[in-house]
Design a protein around this nucleic acid. Sequence first.
DNA 1: CACGATACGGAACCATGTTCCGTTTTGCAA
DNA 2: TTGCAAAACGGAACATGGTTCCGTATCGTG
Lengths: 179, 179
Amino acid sequence: MTARRVDARRNEQALLDAAAAAFVASGVEAPVRDIAARAGVGVGTVYRHFPTRADLVVAVYRHQVEACAEADLTGLDAYAALARWIDLFVDFLVTKHGLAGAMRPDSADFAALHTYFLDRLLPVCTRLLDAAAAAGAIRADVQAYELMRGVGNLCIGAEHDPGYDARRLVGLLVAGLRR
Amino acid sequence: MTARRVDARRNEQALLDAAAAAFVASGVEAPVRDIAARAGVGVGTVYRHFPTRADLVVAVYRHQVEACAEADLTGLDAYAALARWIDLFVDFLVTKHGLAGAMRPDSADFAALHTYFLDRLLPVCTRLLDAAAAAGAIRADVQAYELMRGVGNLCIGAEHDPGYDARRLVGLLVAGLRR
DNA sequence: CACGATACGGAACCATGTTCCGTTTTGCAA
DNA sequence: TTGCAAAACGGAACATGGTTCCGTATCGTG
């Protein structure tokens, strides 16, 4: 169990940086080869550090997902907290080219992404949703999973389309939740 | 301008049938090679009849899209007509594996699909939406394009996922439209 | 029946994710 | 300092999927 070699650590960081840049430039669907080239490494190195493209995506956005999971919602009533949290989630998805699209579960590739997001954020959403339901602010028959999937789906293709405002539609959906 | 050869006509029909079967079996993402094999023709023949995979998809579902565009909504008030029409649209999308996913505009491949759906259905939706807005049943600041995109997105990945009910979420969205 | 137009089949091409393995680099230890 | 085994690397090669190309087969008219 020796420490990792310095070149390995260096390359992993270079890959994270390169991937982040590539995702901004070309969306999360940026080819692995492009990312490897940006980082100045071979594709084999990418796969040694991140077994799958999805794992790389997860690694790049992990801290932002954490931030979303740990958002400060103090001082808000149950409904406002839910609405605010969903806003944060939507902002996150909409600003990452194609992330929402990659998160849908029917794309076999990105299963890891889908899983990670759900593992990390579902408990948070469940708590907020239950609290709002308990407060009588919203109907009680909607599950957090369903809501998150719906919100995620609404964010698909929100960039590059002036005629489509994901935030507004999510607002409509959340409004539909009210009792 | 001679008539088309009989083999050409026969193959086109065989392709439509094969594609329909393949889409039911494996979703709209069924490989072109599979469809060609089912139809007993070579891939070249597929592309001669349908320049692109998306064109084949459009051809297969064209009559169902027509049916949706010409749905009988007589005897319903403005809001009910809108709700009913959206139900029909959702039913259509949800029953076709992956169709909703393929319809999203950020997938360069299926641009033709996206375009066709919009060309054919947007006018219908616009009329229903305007009528409902004029009747004061719903808010007046939502565009048909936005609504259709939202509904389409909500239908993505609705199959194979017992925990996700697209119809219900669309219902929530439409409820959020009410004034 | 001949022949030109039409249509066909499928090998070949390009792009992408992923795997494999011979080569290089690193770091511990003698 | 130097030797060497483990760790890591690079990129060719494989799998899959859309699409193109062109030599060949078929149709239908004269």
